[in-house]
Structure formats: C-alpha cells, structure tokens
C-alpha cells in the first residue's frame, strides 16, 4: 500500500502536506523563504529550521534528535545558497502513531524517520522551495536468524515488527534522486554484509530503474509495484494536473 498524501491542504502555510502510511500520520507545513531572526542569519545561505511536534505532550530530546537528522538531510538537498539570508521553517506535527508502535522493540525514532522525511519533502515541494534533488526513504528490518522469515523486511508495518518478534537490526536509508545515499541510521547487531544487503534492497525500493529485473519478483511485502520515486512523482503529477485542470480543459 502506497502512502496516502494530500498536498497544500493548509491554507495559511506556504506549503503543506499530510502523509499517512502504515498507521503513521504526519502533517507538514513549510514557511519560506521568510525573514530570519538576526541571531540565526547566515550570510551566504538560507537557515533551515525544523520543528518536530510529537503526537502527545511537549517535545523531548528524542524530537530534537529527529529534528537534527531531518535538518541535516534537508540541508543537503535544499539549494540554500540560492536564497541566502532567509529562513525556511519546517514544522512536522505527528498526528498519530500505529497502536503497536510502542511494543515493536524497535527504536521509535528510527521507525518514524522515513515518514518524517517524506512529509517534509512533499511540504517543501508544495511550498516551491528550490531543491537540488528529491529524496526517498525506507525502513528495512532484519529479523533474528532463528525466527521464521529470515529475509529482511522491507518497509514493515508496526504489526509486522511485532509478529517478527525478535528483530536483529533496523536500518533507515534515504536516497537522493541521483541515487546517492543521503542518510543512514542503523541500529542493532549486524555485519557489513548484512548492511550492504539491506542497503541494496532499500535502494531498489527507493529508486530502482524502470524495467529493471526486480519488476516481477519481490515487492510483494507492500503489494506495490512502483518504487518510491515513481510514487513521489505520481503524487506531484496528480496535484499539478488538478491545479491546471482549468488550463488543460480549455
């Protein structure tokens, strides 16, 4: 099941997106380029501010860590040099988490990271912030060897993780449009070979070439036949087509 998205659904923000996938629901809003407080101003590039708001309660150090990760990743794709001395403010409000999220035994910050990245990217696209590339991100979990499905789980739901019981390691990968590894967070016990396998799998799910070998087999985990990059393009295409419906009709 591909993520459900809605673009530009908040009217007061410059750009916004609502994203729902596997029980995670996040609203992202982007304001920018706007005036930057003097203290944060950078003479040659734009300041990026990321705020992550949890579903319940006030922000904790965990959210600061997520903010730092999202900030570092977005800084590498936003063309900050083309809008110097401005501020791009990204607010990510987590609306809901899957019910089983607490009992998966997986670091919850790692599990939510791909969703936060997708939301922020869609909101940035919606706000027309200059970007050098896009990014796609996916979670890969490697179950412990003694449990039944020992193949890595691609983009597992919280329920999948609970059913797999003991997860040996979890990995989050984010790839840019030109297939560079932008972000990786891996946790657990694993060897380099396992990591490489997971990385390959993630790369295939994120930005596999059209007509590649993986088209027929695999991918049944999600029931999706497209990769995430195609999904992203589709989402934006639909939105643009909708906005241009008057122009194209005449």
């Amino acid at each position: 099941m591909a993520p459900e998205t809605e673009l530009s659904n908040l009217h007061r923000a410059d750009g916004s997106a609502t994203y729902t996938h596997h029980g995670y629901s996040i609203i992202g809003a982007v304001n920018g380029p706007i005036e930057v407080p003097r203290r944060d101003e950078l003479p040659e590039e734009a300041t990026i501010e990321v705020n992550v708001r949890p579903a319940a309660g006030v922000g904790s150090p965990k959210d600061r860590q997520l903010e730092t990760l999202v900030h570092n990743t977005l800084r590498s794709i936003i063309l900050t040099r083309s809008i110097p001395r401005t501020l791009v403010q990204i607010t990510l409000q987590i609306r809901s988490l899957p019910e089983e999220a607490a009992s998966t035994g997986v670091n919850p910050s790692i599990a939510i990271l791909p969703h936060l990245l997708h939301t922020s990217l869609l909101a940035l696209l919606s706000a027309s912030i200059p970007l050098s590339t896009i990014l796609t991100s996916v979670l890969v979990a490697i179950p412990a060897a003694h449990t039944q499905p020992s193949t890595p789980l691609l983009s597992p739901t919280a329920n999948d993780l609970v059913r797999a019981k003991s997860i040996k390691s979890v990995h989050v990968f984010a790839f840019s449009g030109d297939k560079k590894l932008l972000l990786n967070e891996s946790d657990g016990v694993f060897s380099y070979e396992e990591w490489e396998e997971a990385c390959e799998m993630a790369e295939e799910a994120c930005c596999r070439e059209k007509g590649g070998v993986g088209l027929a087999e695999g991918m049944d985990v999600d029931g999706q036949s497209r990769n995430l990059e195609e999904w992203l393009r589709e989402v934006v295409k639909e939105k643009v087509a909708y906005e241009q419906r008057w122009k194209t009709a005449t």
Binding site: L181, V189, Y192
Partner: peptide, 22 residues
C-alpha cells in the same frame, strides 16, 4: 575478523555510499 557493527549513522550529504562505508 568478524567485527560486529552495533550502530551506523550517516547524514548531511551524499558522498559516502556503499563502497566508502566498507
């Protein structure tokens, strides 16, 4: 030789890929 990796974090850019990570 069997070293176990316990954590891997990488962010902020796209220079280090799979080969470099090795």
């Amino acid at each position: 030789k069997g070293a176990v990796v316990r954590r891997m974090e990488k962010n902020g850019g796209g220079v280090v890929g799979r080969e470099e990570m090795k």
